[in-house]
């Protein structure tokens, strides 16, 4: 029982990252009913963009300045790739049905993964931690909690996620754009009749989702290796988080993210072999879908004939 606190903290930290990615899933799914499989790849590209900026910055830049810069540029890279994907791949097939859209999303996801491994030749990257005071070194410093070391940078995750979620909540609930977004998610055709530019709303939704995914990528890049396949599993888990919390619901996505993060770490806490860690999320998904198919905080939509 002595290292319970460690696994709980660690689960909350990784859960915050899942929550950030899940927010993008939930927004996009809420609005065009598409499981955007490529969302995990936006996160991967965010991580790469952050590393790219790190290479460009002069080596003497203090970490307090460079870390926010990296996070910001990752977010921008996420926005660019998300909007481009939407415009090039998803927009032309929007009317061709769900299966076509889903297959395209899978195709885009594979395309981005393979492009990244084509450019990077599949060598994992990591912020170098040889010099004291460099980003890599600062990010690898850890504090001992409950018998295990938690990296300092991980303590940034939770507050950042909460702040971003509150901003998103404000945008969706309080602004005109948010009202347009909710209208499109309820009924796109009626929203178009009311004078809402659907294309612009969808584009901006992808923009928000890409921003969140890019920032999440930068955060994970600080503490572990960056490689082309890194987006796949977190992307799946974040989608599971969005479904568990109730897809289309912003608090649901955050709750789901934290649940998946904690459950995953509780598997390790219970001395189950770490290979089964990734299985836990899928088991949670199947259980939630069986007991409460609309998700924990989701609202039940009745199908009209």
């Amino acid at each position: 029982m002595d290292n319970f606190l460690f696994f709980l903290t660690s689960g909350l930290c990784i859960g915050a990252v899942y929550a950030l990615i899940a927010l993008g899933y939930t927004l996009v799914y809420g609005i065009i009913k598409l499981i955007n499989f490529a969302h995990g790849e936006f996160y991967m590209i965010g991580a790469y963009a952050g590393f790219g900026i790190y290479l460009v910055l002069p080596s003497g830049t203090p970490a307090i300045l460079s870390i926010p810069l990296i996070i910001l540029s990752s977010g921008i890279a996420g926005i660019i790739i998300a909007v481009l994907t939407e415009q090039i791949a998803y927009k032309p097939i929007r009317k061709s049905g769900r299966l076509a859209a889903l297959l395209t999303a899978i195709g885009v996801s594979f395309l981005l993964q393979n492009l990244a491994s084509f450019i990077n030749k599949a060598n994992p990257l990591q912020y170098p931690s040889d010099k004291s005071g460099s980003i890599g070194e600062i990010c690898q410093r850890s504090i001992v909690i409950g018998g295990g070391g938690i990296k300092i940078i991980q303590f940034v995750y939770i507050p950042l996620t909460i702040v971003l979620t509150l901003i998103l909540w404000h945008i969706v609930m309080k602004t005109n754009f948010g009202r347009a977004m909710r209208a499109v998610s309820q009924d796109p055709d009626a929203a178009a009749l009311m004078g809402i530019d659907i294309n612009s709303v969808i584009r901006k939704t992808f923009l928000l989702g890409g921003l969140m995914a890019g920032i999440a990528g930068a955060l994970i890049g600080f503490q572990s290796v960056i490689e082309p396949m890194m987006g796949f599993m977190p992307g799946l888990k974040a989608f599971i988080a969005a479904v568990v919390g109730g897809i289309g619901s912003i608090p649901g996505a955050v709750l789901g993210g934290f649940i998946i993060g904690i459950v995953e770490n509780m598997v390790l806490f219970c001395n189950i072999p770490s290979g089964y860690k990734d299985v836990a999320a899928f088991v949670v998904l199947i259980l939630v879908l069986l007991i409460r198919p609309q998700g924990i905080l989701g609202s039940n939509v009745r199908e009209k004939v």
């Binding site: 009913k33 499981i35 769900r98 889903l102 799946l236 989608f239 599971i240 479904v243 072999p273 290979g275 089964y276 990734d278 299985v279 899928f282 088991v283 998904l285 199947i286 879908l289 069986l290 198919p293």
Partner: peptide, 27 residues
């Protein structure tokens, strides 16, 4: 249990099943 699910949810559960099978076989 899973065939009650519709569309995308079924896709995700079956995807999860495939991945679980692979991960369990590895372990």
């Amino acid at each position: 249990p899973c065939l009650r699910l519709k569309g995308d949810y079924l896709a995700i559960v079956t995807l999860g099943f495939g991945e679980i099978t692979r991960l369990v076989l590895i372990n």
